[in-house]
Amino acid sequence: MGSGLVNVAVDISLMTLLAVTAIGIIRSRHLFATAMLSGIYSLISAALFVTLDAVDVAFTEAAVGAGISTVLMLGAMTLTRRSEKHAVKLHIGPILVCLAVGAALIYGTVEMPPFGSTEAAGFKHIVPEYIAGSRDDIQVPNIVTSILASYRGFDTLGETAVIFTAGIGVWFLIGRRRREDEEDEKKTETPGDRA
């Protein structure tokens, strides 16, 4: 029971840090600070994933959220603006919408299985089969890998295709240089060619 209370304390303190970071993101007008705070948010949630026993997910979140996505945000920011134009103030309409959504979601949790319960439907349905199969048939110790690549291979193929498509999309949108730049170059080149 002692370790259970420690777990709860660690969980709640990490989640408080997350909430503080989120409030920081809401209040900040500078996009540089926002990008950094969203990196911090990802890093803290990676720590939280470790406490929730999801080591693979924590690994990915730390590499993707805290590393690559911060770099991307900063890259997009240098290409656009450094700060928001309008001052941050509280809007009543969005707050009401959020409160309504929150109330509906919390109402939905009432019937959910308790946190940490192994009696939940998710644990009973097909997962025991996957765990036994990973041990006996596939003999890959990391169950996440065996589900990812073998049992759910079609899913992963689809996800890879999505990543591929997104990469191609980014390349077509901003991969080539701006039209004006190319036109400028042509203008400077043409006299040189004639000479």
Binding site: G167, V170, L173
Partner: peptide, 21 residues
């Protein structure tokens, strides 16, 4: 295969952003 595609996409996205500025 997954690793190759993800590597390529991450580098492609970064080059796309960085090549603009």
């Amino acid at each position: 295969g997954v690793g190759v595609t993800v590597t390529g996409v991450i580098i492609a996205i970064f080059f796309a952003y960085a090549g603009r500025t």
